[in-house]
Amino acid sequence: MYAQMVKSTGKGVQSRDDMSPEDKAFQDRIDRGEKIEPKDYMPEAYRKTLIRQIGQHAHSEIVGQLPEGNWITRAPTLERKANLLAKVQDEAGHGLYLYCAAETLGVSRDELVEMLHSERMKYSSIFNYPTLTWADMGAVGWLVDGAAIMNQVPLQRTSYGPYARAMVRICKEESFHQRQGYHIMIKMAKEGTADQKRMAQDALNRFWYPALMMFGPSDKDSVHSAQSMAWKIKINTNDELRQKFVDETVPQAEFLGLTIPDENLRWNDETGHYEFSEPDWSEFFEVISGNGPCNAERLSTRRKAWDDGAWVREAMLAHARKSQKRSQAAE
């Protein structure tokens, strides 16, 4: 999940008795399945929670370019390089769709970027892990994009119109990402040399638990999630999505001849689901609060890109203003 632990009101679901007439009418619209559009009435808490959620989602797409960008120049073939470049470009596009959706809620792009850089807004924990070998490109596409899809498909039905529409576009494009990753894994794990198989298994070993963490800790008792679900900006619980991800991914690993690094993993005939070990949540809390292996590097790369690009942004604007003045003078 690209948005983890998004805070809402912190007070649980607001009861109807506590709602103003406007808020009641708003909740009725959501319950009827209507989409909320930018100029429509919305409670301030809904607006603020959405900015946090969409902003975090957008930041994840942008920061998410970095672990894969790391391998563009070192892709093993020209075809793989073109594939990876296209995928990373898509992530940039997804970030832009989402920033625009957030901006319809009254926050500016610069404010969002600034909040990321000053660590007042988060991005997904997963992008704070390093990508050490080419097999990691396979594991990231397969597992990270796979987990992201799990989360994003239901969000196409989210109550906020611009967010839902951005998700439709993103989901359409995202399935190529997962498939290209799995394709790399097939090449290495099924058709590769012994060394390549080892690399593929090693990548799975390192990314399995961080991928499970993407869904966030169990939120069955979370007051934030309950309110977000009432607003339909969150559709499933974290545990539901994590289970779905495990159920779909285990057979894919079996096909590759790879072993999921979990001794407790087993199929439960009664529930019709896999049983699996929880990731180490203390690691998750460390990573999300800034102490993961790559947090500092990711943020400094983003800040540097933003600062180094400042003169381009200013020059483009100065040029546009000058040409506008010139054309006005000519009229």
Partner: peptide
Amino acid sequence: GSLHAADAEHAIRNARD
């Protein structure tokens, strides 16, 4: 959708990408 750009020509280029 929407995007940011300095002027119209720039907006078309960005829209294409």
